[in-house]
């Protein structure tokens, strides 16, 4: 029982990170039909920039803030400099551009930073919390809390603000959005910026637990993509549920079967979703009358 609880704790923690990466995918996909495979690099940049600023003597909160700001700028630049000039190309072309951007960002990170693993100090120390025979790092609670706060803020933004509704409107019908005077290019800018910021935050809070290096983005992007697929691509609640589920399935597979198969779980899920239920768990129900 204690063992199961332990697996659930670690599953929830990584699941929260996958959920945030999945949300990043969802935001950009909804605004632009693009699957942004550089999403994982946002997570990497958040962690790595913070690590190097802290090493340079910048206090952790300030370093984190700068890291989020810089990563957001990278997200905007990705849209303005790489995606926007290719506007009008097929989504497949645009997706390939994001893969190129992902490789580029990894290369740059390797040069600016280094090729080693780094960690950050935990916010509330590293004394494990004991609960029901299982242990949990205080930082796990930070990850869960931050993920929950981001999800709630994002939900409030989408449901309660006119800008959030303009984002939903653009996702639902780009032509109509343009015809009522929404500058849809700005909306896509905005989606890239928010996705990058969310990715960076995820990267910062998870680094004390999982460590970070220049190349952590690749696997995270795949996991986040699997989470978004499992939840139903384009659905924000789906990405969150998909992320948490994926984290749990991974942790249970690692615990009860073998940790060698941990990473294979995501790929298996992608395959199963594609074959058996392409619309995912929360895929858009078509209730529209035409």
């Amino acid at each position: 029982m204690a063992e199961l609880l332990q697996f659930i704790f670690s599953g929830l923690t990584v699941g929260a990170v996958y959920a945030l990466v999945g949300l990043g995918f969802t935001l950009i996909y909804n605004a632009s039909d693009i699957i942004n495979f550089a999403q994982g690099e946002f997570v990497m940049l958040g962690g790595m920039i913070t690590v190097f600023l802290v090493a340079a003597g910048v206090p952790l909160p300030l370093a984190a803030l700068i890291a989020v700001g810089l990563t957001t700028a990278v997200g905007l630049a990705l849209h303005r400099l790489a995606i926007e000039p290719a506007r009008g190309s097929s989504p497949v072309t645009l997706i390939m551009i994001t893969i190129g951007a992902s490789i580029f960002l990894r290369g740059i990170a390797q040069i600016i930073f280094d090729r080693r693993f780094h960690s950050l100090p935990s916010l509330f120390g590293s004394e494990p919390i004991h609960f029901g025979g299982a242990t949990m790092l205080p930082q796990s609670l930070v990850v869960l809390a931050v993920a929950a706060i981001i999800v709630v803020l994002l939900w409030l933004f989408m449901e309660r603000t006119l800008l959030g509704k303009a984002v939903t409107a653009t996702a639902a019908n780009r032509l109509a959005a343009r015809l009522i005077g929404i500058n849809t290019r700005r909306i896509v800018d905005f989606s890239f910026a928010i996705s990058a910021a969310i990715g960076a935050v995820a990267g910062i809070v998870v680094t004390p637990i999982t460590l970070t290096s220049y190349d952590v983005g690749t696997l995270l992007a795949l996991k986040g993509f699997a989470a978004a697929m499992l939840g139903g691509i384009g659905s924000a609640p789906g990405a969150v549920v998909g992320g948490v589920l994926l984290g749990l399935i991974e942790a249970l597979t690692a615990g009860y079967i073998s940790s060698n198969y941990k990473d294979a779980v995501s790929f298996l899920i992608i395959l199963i979703v594609l074959v058996a239920m392409p619309q995912g768990l929360f895929g858009r129900a078509r209730i529209e009358r035409v």
Binding site: T168, A169, A172, N173, A177, L179
Partner: peptide, 8 residues
Amino acid sequence: GRQIFAPL
């Protein structure tokens, strides 16, 4: 074809 924002 009207093009209303169906989810809103």
